[in-house]
Amino acid sequence: MSDNRLSVFKTYKLYVGGKFPRSESGRVYEVTDSKGRWLANAPHSSRKDARDAVVAARKAFGGWSGATAYNRGQILYRVAEMLEGRREQFVREVADAEGLSRSKAAAVVEAAVDRWVWYAGWTDKIGQIAGGVNPVAGPFLNLSTPEPTGVVTVLAPRTPRSWAWSR
């Protein structure tokens, strides 16, 4: 890493249906650090981008919810493995974008990795805890099985630091 070398910036994009498109709007907004310095341009998603994302999620729902709980657990655990492997990158990005110290940023990333591991273990247990055979008073069999909701929309808060490592 010579001092003369110019580093390569990352183009941040959307993630929709397994692909990394730019926003349909063609627009971006500036992401700055806590001191207002420019960090990167992020795609400024439009309503159409949101619709495309929901359509992609709906399309994937059958396959994902139909996969065995074991298989889903393996994939969640894989995410934890990959996140751990890219720990340094995420610590840097969290520190820059959220204005955290390195050690606090590391704690945020570590908590995120462990959270993936925690839910990797839940996939094949939730059915036994939330479901079961109901002891009905009659000659019929009655089962309860928790089922997934469907497509879920998640809105991340503007200042994640208050909750991300509070647990």
Binding site: Y70, W118, A120, G121, W122, T123, D124, K125, I129
Partner: peptide, 18 residues
Amino acid sequence: AAHFFYYAGWADKLDHAG
């Protein structure tokens, strides 16, 4: 392997096991 995966997931969820 599946057995170790399954019980790995229980180690931090014993409060929920009933």
